[in-house]
């Protein structure tokens, strides 16, 4: 553990069965809008947990509630079993990139980090270390107001790493970064998780999470839609099918129907077969002597799996107004 050096890490990494961030029935109502609705989830150390949802789904609000910046209307969220408010040295325990440019435009990058460091008795040399780490050393003395969005993100990330914390929250960290920067952030997140830290990162882009996250928590309209490993998300998707081309479609379709598969005929003459894998389809085709020109398993992209899940949530919302009203009445 080179990073932790000779001090005890704030949270001893223990990926098996530990929960670092725990939300229980978390809700947040702003005047007329229920931004977060009865959200319950756990975030484990040692993996990158993606926090996924369309814009306005309540991701940032949830992150602010974890940080104690916004008070929940009801429910509860803890970090390592404690409320954020009760952390002794918050920056040593939780680092967060909440939103880019939450920085006084007239203050230099170094001064911004220094004032944060001082509040948690972090030595001045650590400020230079994190500036080096995010590649801002050469512009450390420049006013943050002159920074590009990407540089602002890097400064925010530097602030998150300042206290060498065991829990890290990143709200849309790749926003405004160039491809180089995006790759750098991905590696950073994975590296932090490998060290046993808890890494919780929000994004509205499934494609980004597919490359970075091990596990995803998906929310829509403030509600939990799914929490599962990224791999499972694909397996459970109804979008998995096998594309088949044959000059004798009628014979094969009859046989597939008989075997219990669902078959769709596409405009280009191909068949889409669900509920049966490629091997079984090939065997069946041989038995009925149908010639195969193509037999290709198609897995849906994560993006499609995500769209499918969020669509469900919208249908669910439309169909359940009475339940939502009743739940609101109990509060």
């Amino acid at each position: 553990m080179l990073w932790f050096g000779d001090r005890r890490p704030p949270h001893r990494p223990n990926p098996e069965g530990t929960t670092m961030i725990e939300a229980r029935s978390l809700s947040k109502r702003y005047k007329d809008k229920l931004a977060v609705d009865n959200l319950t989830f756990q975030v484990r150390p040692g993996v990158v947990t993606g926090f996924l949802g369309p814009n306005g789904a309540g991701k940032s609000t949830t992150m602010r509630m974890i940080m104690g910046l916004d008070a929940p209307t009801s429910g509860d969220v803890t970090v390592d079993g404690r409320h954020y408010h009760d952390l002794g040295w918050p920056l040593h325990e939780v680092g967060a990139l909440l939103e880019a440019k939450a920085i006084h435009p007239g203050r230099s990058a170094r001064a911004h980090l220094l004032m944060l460091a001082e509040s948690n008795r972090i030595p001045r040399r650590r400020v230079d270390e994190v500036l080096e780490l995010v590649g801002l050393t050469s512009v450390a003395g420049r006013r943050a107001g002159k920074f590009s969005l990407g540089m602002g993100q890097r400064l925010g990330i530097a602030g998150a790493l300042l206290g060498d914390p065991g829990v890290l929250l990143f709200d849309e960290p790749v926003n405004g970064l160039d491809p180089d920067g995006i790759r750098w952030v991905r590696n950073l997140l994975k590296g932090l998780a490998r060290e046993g830290r808890t890494v919780f990162v929000s994004s509205h882009l499934m494609s980004e999470m597919a490359l970075t996250a091990d596990e995803v928590i998906i929310i829509g309209r403030g509600r939990l839609i799914a929490q599962r490993p990224v791999g499972d998300l694909l397996d459970q998707s109804a979008q998995r099918f096998v594309r088949v081309r044959t000059p004798q479609p009628d014979i094969l379709v009859a046989a597939l129907d008989g075997a219990g598969a669902t078959v769709g005929r596409e405009d280009d003459g191909s068949l889409t077969v669900r509920g049966m894998d490629a091997t079984a389809i090939g065997d069946l085709a041989a038995r009925v002597q149908a010639v195969l020109h193509e037999l290709s398993p198609q897995s849906a992209s994560l993006e499609e799996a995500y769209m499918e899940l969020t669509e469900e949530s919208i249908e669910y919302h439309g169909a359940q107004p009475m339940v939502a009203a009743a739940a609101g009445g109990n509060r």
Partner: peptide, 15 residues
């Protein structure tokens, strides 16, 4: 950005 990982930085923070 230098191709450094956060692991390369010398530890300097103690709680």
């Amino acid at each position: 950005v230098a191709a450094t990982s956060p692991l390369d930085a010398a530890p300097s923070t103690r709680v």
